Simulated scan of single mutants.
Amino acid sequence: MNYILRDENALYYECGYSSDNAIFVSLGSEKWLITDSRYTVEAKENVKGAEVIEASDLLGALRALLRGRGTTKLLFDPKEWSVSALDTLRGKLPHVRFLPRPDFSHRKRIVKSPEEIALLRQAAELGREGFATFAKYLGLFGLDRREKRLHFEAKAAMSGYGEYDLSFDPIVAIGPNAAKPHALPTDVVLKEGDLLLVDAGLKYRRYCSDRTRTLFVKEGAAFDDEQHFSSPKIQKAYDLVRKAHDRAIEQARAGMTGARIDRLAREVIEKGGMGEFFVHSTGHGVGLDIHEMPYISARSGTRVEEGMVFTIEPGIYIPGEFGIRIEDMVVISGGRAEIL
């Protein structure tokens, strides 16, 4: 198979190394990583199964490589390439047919190897520890702090105070701000009795974790699954989200479509009378990227298989009032969903 890749995680998956200025080329059994002189020493130390080519003009080196081997067909992911770069390649290589394959690398990576699952499991464990560290901070110093400060402290705790990269910028939202699924931090101050939603993750050897918890803020509060809110409306919503989360994980099976698993969660919230407030899909794949295939959505016809890793994260968001989400990563193992 002949293909070219430019996305950093796609490159890393192919050869164990990436940089922000590189192209991976596969022509049958021959493979190359083209990069510039800033990265060649490190690349030669880390690249596996491919030859490193140093070039100041990456596209020029790619053209020379393709001409030299008489390549006539080449797959690429249009999401990775700019219009300008493709126009340049097509203009100089009129004999090559460039065949678009959206999500080419994601499709290759959709089933995780045992080694990848072990890395994702470790990322999830470290992520849980990060939540516990942040909970300790909240218990000691969290009250009367602004969301912006809590967001900063969440980043510090989740990274192991600089030990790990983050999977994404954490979401730390109080009360009404939590009704925005991807809320940005504000100047709102945390008070006892508030609802607090935290969505965060870290990277372990480049593999991501992703977890969300919603808690009732009180002395000794923790990111436990069981929470008791003073508002009956919030408690009802929380219990529905938790039931939807648990049902989807308990009943998910290999061979089900993403749409069917989404339905397992969505039916609970709809039957509870809050379906209109579940505004996003139930989950997404996780790996080298924080959002990968398979997608657990109402439109997903992908059948989940052994070794696929994805999130289950139902939520209820009532604008101006509150938002609730509970999220865990799972792997299909032995035909069922196992929480990582």
Rank of each mutant, 00 (worst) to 15 (best):
D144W: 10
D144I: 03
R145C: 11
R145E: 15
R145W: 03
R146L: 07
R146W: 03
E147P: 04
K148C: 09
K148A: 13
K148M: 13
K148N: 06
K148E: 14
R149D: 12
R149T: 14
R149C: 00
R149N: 11
L150D: 06
H151V: 04
H151R: 01
F152V: 02
F152W: 12
E153H: 03
E153V: 14
E153G: 03
E153F: 05
A154H: 02
A154T: 14
A154Y: 02
A154V: 10
A156P: 00
A156V: 04
A157P: 00
A157Y: 10
M158E: 06
S159K: 08
S159V: 04
G160I: 05
G160E: 03
Y161D: 14
Y161C: 03
G162D: 06
G162Q: 07
G162E: 08
E163F: 04
Y164L: 11
Y164W: 14
D165E: 14
D165A: 15
D165G: 13
L166Y: 04
L166K: 08
S167T: 13
F168I: 01
D169L: 10
P170S: 10
I171Q: 06
V172I: 10
A173L: 10
A173W: 10
I174T: 10
G175E: 11
G175L: 04
G175T: 07
P176F: 07
P176Y: 11
